[in-house]
Amino acid sequence: MSNKRVVTATINEETAEFLCEPRQTLLEVLRDSLNLTGTKEGCSNGNCGACTVIMNGHAVVSCLVLGVEAEGAEIQTIEGVSCDGSLNEVQSAFLEGAALQCGICTPGFIMQTEALLAEKSNPTEDDIRFYLAGNLCRCTGYDKIVRAVMAAAEQRQVTTG
């Protein structure tokens, strides 16, 4: 009783067309149909943020979006945050600041940080902690993550003037 349909979306600035059943989440589609496995699954009910992607300019947990809802949407995943093959400021800050241990939450944190910096270019520590509260990390104790976000914000302000 397959009721698959064709969905067309812009994913990481490229048009993507995929077949999907209504019951498939965007997370499942990204990972299984499009092989974009950088988006991680941690809980499947919106509580851990590991599957965070940016959809139409807003951070969402892709486990709580249906794939069919992506019709016509613009979606950015971890694979699309840096298009020229190098690392962007946020990725560099996480890497240089040792802001990851096991790394499973890292793509979600980076996407959420992208959303934060798009909204607020110079966030305070409290802003960062509030904005990232939907992303769980069990390894780092968050200290180095928060510092990396601060460093990324600073660096981005330097590079974008």
């Binding site: 990972r31 299984d32 092989n35 974009l36 496995t37 950088g38 988006t39 991680k40 699954e41 995943t77 971890i78 694979e79 840096s82 690392l87 990725q91 560099s92 996480f94 890497l95 240089e96 040792a98 990851l100 790394g103 499973i104 890292t106 793509p107 980076i110």
Partner: peptide
């Protein structure tokens, strides 16, 4: 010293393959 971890780039770009990523 504090060198950059060797597996770091893969983990900030989403390229690192975890158990669920295998196909």
């Amino acid at each position: 010293t504090r060198p950059i971890r060797h597996d770091g780039v893969d983990k900030v770009t989403g390229r690192a393959l975890y158990g669920a990523d295998i196909k």
